[in-house]
């Protein structure tokens, strides 16, 4: 691997060099020593891209829809970055990243940059890694930035919420409506796509979703639209793109965008601090030894639980006067 100096690599990536951008993403993803320097250089260049998170159950058609939506944006002359996250096997650490199968046209377009990411056991958390990749796309001048992630589990939902606009994709079969409500997808969606409307049951699911959204409607003046789509037949794609643009306009006109940006950054900072503190806590050999010792005492009945817990807290948090 020819190791280019970081400043040149950054400059090349900001100037549109795809290999340089790809190398930077790897450095960030691999948690390389250059990671912090990259992130520091990248953040000031961000803010130009509109970020969209797309989530939903496996097989709902997220990748297929993104192929269509991305190509619709290409027709409008927009450049695109897309990160597709798939699970890493907790047993082997390997991953089968297959989203590109459905993105043949977008994948071959040099103005569309697609990156497949394994969820790994990322030290900084899955969303921290993904957000960094989105920042890189943004800094490299992409107009639209998408992230596809599975709508299962909290870590994945956090990733979906990295976007300014969150799109939830569901399908008529297999009781997706109920699943969505259980999985917390109803709360995060700004736009709902009922995909595979070429199958039976799309109208019913649309009604279910509308009813559920009606119940949950809050002070927010945005009413999440529910749109039937078929990635296979190309139906509802223009409507989906319009909905994304409408949501964007809505946030801009209501002056909510600075608010949203601030909230997203706040969450990111909080999470960053939390993961680092947690990491520092348990990698401290003294505390690790103390944990063993405390466990011994607890099991032999020598001390109570609260007392044990306090013994393990960092100074200042242990309730003792310092």
């Amino acid at each position: 691997m020819n190791r280019q100096a970081l400043p040149q690599l950054l400059e090349a990536a900001f100037g549109g060099n795809r290999r340089a951008l790809a190398r930077l993403i790897s450095l960030v993803e691999n948690d390389a020593p250059e990671r912090s320097a990259i992130l520091d250089a990248v953040i000031p260049k961000t803010g130009g891209a509109w970020r969209v998170g797309v989530t939903g159950p496996p097989g709902a058609g997220k990748s297929s829809l993104l192929e269509e939506i991305v190509m619709a944006y290409r027709e409008r002359g927009k450049t695109v970055g897309l990160a597709a996250v798939d699970p890493t096997s907790p047993f082997t650490g390997g991953a089968f990243l297959r989203d590109r199968i459905r993105m043949a046209r977008a994948g071959a377009d040099p103005e569309v940059f697609i990156r497949s990411l394994g969820s790994r056991g990322s030290l900084g958390g899955l969303s921290a890694q993904t957000e960094a990749v989105l920042d890189l796309f943004d800094a490299a001048g992409k107009d639209m930035v998408f992230v596809e992630t599975l709508g299962v589990g909290q870590a994945e939902l956090d990733v979906a919420e990295c976007g300014y606009t969150t799109v939830v994709v569901l399908v008529p079969e297999s009781g997706d409506g109920i699943q969505a409500m259980k999985a917390g997808l109803m709360e995060i969606g700004d736009i709902f796509l009922v995909n595979k409307c070429d199958h039976d049951g799309a109208a019913l699911l649309e009604m279910e979703l509308r009813a559920a959204l009606e119940l949950g409607s809050n002070a927010d003046s945005w009413k999440p639209p529910v749109i039937q789509t078929s990635a296979i037949e190309g139906r509802g794609i223009a409507e989906a793109v319009e909905a994304i643009e409408a949501h964007r306009t809505h946030l801009a006109q209501n002056g909510q965008l600075p608010h949203l940006r601030r909230r997203l950054l706040e969450r990111r900072l909080r999470r960053g601090v939390e993961t680092r503190v947690t990491h520092a806590l348990w990698t401290d050999p003294e505390r690790a030894a103390k944990l063993e010792e405390t466990l011994d005492k607890l099991l032999s009945g020598g001390v109570g639980f609260e007392e044990s817990l306090r013994a393990l807290l960092p100074e200042g948090l242990d309730g003792e006067e310092s």
Binding site: A95, L97, A104, G107
Partner: peptide, 14 residues
């Protein structure tokens, strides 16, 4: 599948 089981990240394009 074998490469994945060996801990690699496999990008499959079809």
């Amino acid at each position: 599948a074998a490469l994945k089981d060996a801990g690699m990240e496999v990008i499959y394009t079809g």
